[in-house]
Design a protein around this nucleic acid. Structure first.
Length: 111
DNA sequence: CCACTGACGAGTG
DNA sequence: GCACTCGCCAGTG
């Protein structure tokens, strides 16, 4: 797997900024990392992570608010669900999250 | 070098 | 909401 000095490092950096109890999308991470239109690369970079990672990878979902891991039929999809709910993020029975409620915004939105 | 695949996104019917 | 297409990029055979 690629080491530092690649786009992966920027992606991981952006992922670390996602606060607890919030979720964001692959596309958003890509833009934060200065890699617009490369959402796919984000998913690829995260897939390279192993179980010992400290990154909050579970906070990254697709633009449809669904857990891509479950969609891909990955066993770790359950882990993502558990970790999210433990942070207070509600996950639909279909593995869907309300981006309107839990989507992370760089600028706080006062109601 | 070519073909295929993959934790994606936006657009179209 | 679902199925399909095209765009994007890296890794693998």
């Amino acid at each position: 797997m690629p080491e530092a000095s690649s786009s992966y490092e920027r992606i991981y950096r952006a992922v670390r900024k996602v606060p607890r109890g919030r979720v964001t999308t692959y596309g958003a991470i890509a833009r934060m990392a200065g890699l617009p239109r490369q959402a796919r690369l984000v998913g690829y970079a995260l897939s390279a992570l192993h179980n010992g990672s400290t990154l909050p990878w579970h906070r990254i979902i697709n633009a449809q608010g669904r857990l891509s891991l479950e969609r891909a039929g990955r066993a770790s999809g359950l882990t993502q669900r558990i970790r999210l709910e433990r942070e207070g993020v509600k996950v639909d029975a279909a593995g869907k999250v309300s981006l309107a409620r839990f989507g992370w915004r760089v600028k706080s939105n006062r109601a």
